[in-house]
Computed example of a mutant assay.
Amino acid sequence: MNKDRIVLLDALRGLGVLGILLCNAPDFAVPPVVAESASHWPHGTGPATLSVWVVTQWLFQRKFVTLFAMLFGVSIFLVGGERSDKDRGAILRRRLLWMVVFGLLHGFLIWYGDVLLSYALAGFVVLFVRSWPARKLIRTGLTIWIVFSLLSLVGLSFAAFTPQAADQQALETAKMLAKAKAAEAAYGGDFLQSLVQNAKDRLAFLPAEPIIFVMTSALMMLGLGAFKAGVLTGEASGRVYRRLLVGGVLASLLVGGLFVAEAVMGLPRGLGMVAVGVQWALAPPTTLAYVALMVFATRSTPWSAIPRALAPVGQMAFTNYLAQSVIMTAIFYGGRGLGLHGEVDRPGLAAITVAIWIAQILWSRWWLDRFEMGPLEWVWRRLYRGPSPLRKRVSAAIA
């Protein structure tokens, strides 16, 4: 039973880290002010481009970062144990402190879209509630999520349907595009120029951290509560997973319908803002539908190959997440490799993403056949826990 649970959690973590890449790919390839925009995407709005955008927004965006946050909430308990365990609590705090360091280095020196800092900061709150029972964790996390989602949705709806003079809107658009053009030149320049621009964009994102902190904390509580309730361990009944699947499918149909309608109607600004708000609010139920599908896969012999293939990726999620940033910046940032910033459309980004998925699935299996953990997991573990073996013993590898 423990083996099945570990495979399930690792498979979900692997699904999360791979799914995040498709959502992040545009942020590596073009300036952040236009990365998530369909109407201002530098390569136009052709059928193939819009199709990839709709699929990403419908089936990927917000779902996998939500899953990743939920699973990080689980790790708070798995590493730190109960609050009464002072020794494990000290290990957990050191783990989170080093994650803050990794997050700052990743965000400022590699890629501005870092989530490690947000997770670490939220972790310092969740560690205080990690001994709460499942029901209290779920109730508290869900309440926070609903309140902030409703506030966000109301704010977006108000902004979307508030009349705006055409000349004022044109002026704002012109400023945004000029900013994007300047950032494009910097990202396409030499190594120092791309490094400085990345740091500037990271600083520009920091004011949003308080909101991200609250929402991430809520997701971690939901994830830990779901873990304690048996949902993330595969212990819940088939009826529970069927309900999660149905609820997630209904939520996903609403989200998908909004983005399809937006594409068909010519990308109206108001509908787009509402669609983003609904997408954000319904991320947890759509994410839990993926959890249900993974559980059903682990229980089915023909489909169990999927979680088995994803589990090694999840065991090395920290390494694979940072490796994605290194690979993508080497492809797109100036002075680091190919320097293709601004030159690849969404279909090309999807192809690059799939290639990295395949590579990380194969490389993770190869590495873990020989070593106990991923290379960065090993470094991180040494920093917060002390020396740990990396290479597998011959007898264990043979077994």
Score class of each variant (00 low, 15 high):
Val260Cys: 07
Lys181Tyr: 07
Gly234Thr: 02
Arg94Ala: 07
Met328Glu: 03
Arg299Ser: 05
Asp369Leu: 00
Trp111Glu: 00
Arg93Gln: 09
Phe124Lys: 03
Pro133Asn: 12
Arg370Phe: 01
Gly337Asn: 14
Pro347Trp: 12
Ser217Tyr: 02
Gly223Met: 01
Val278Asp: 07
Pro26Met: 10
Leu50Ile: 07
Val278Ser: 08
Thr301Cys: 02
Ala350Asn: 11
Ala178Arg: 15
Thr353Gln: 09
Ala396Arg: 00
Asp190Val: 08
Leu117Arg: 04
Gly334Glu: 13
Ala180His: 09
Val126Lys: 02
Lys179Asp: 12
Ala48Met: 13
Arg346His: 09
Ser237Val: 06
Leu177Ile: 14
Leu293Trp: 04
Leu117Val: 04
Thr301Gln: 10
Ala69Asp: 02
Ser325Arg: 01
Ser325Gly: 03
Lys3His: 12
Thr140Pro: 05
Thr49Ala: 11
Ser304Gln: 11
Val274Glu: 02
Thr173Tyr: 11
Val33Cys: 15
Met265Cys: 15
Leu368Thr: 01
Val65Lys: 00
Gly248Gln: 15
Leu96Glu: 03
Glu377Val: 00
Glu209Ile: 06
Ser152His: 06
Ala355Ser: 10
Leu18Ala: 04
Phe318Tyr: 11
Met215Gly: 10
Trp280Tyr: 09
Gly81Cys: 08
Ala236Gln: 03
Arg62Ile: 01
Phe64Met: 00
Leu267Met: 15
Val214Pro: 07
Tyr290Ala: 02
Pro284His: 00
Leu362Tyr: 12
Ala185Glu: 14
Gly334Gln: 10
Gly155Gln: 10
Phe72Arg: 00
Arg346Lys: 11
Thr319Leu: 01
Arg365Ile: 01
Ile146Arg: 07
Ser237Tyr: 11
Ala351Glu: 11
Arg269Leu: 14
Thr49Met: 09
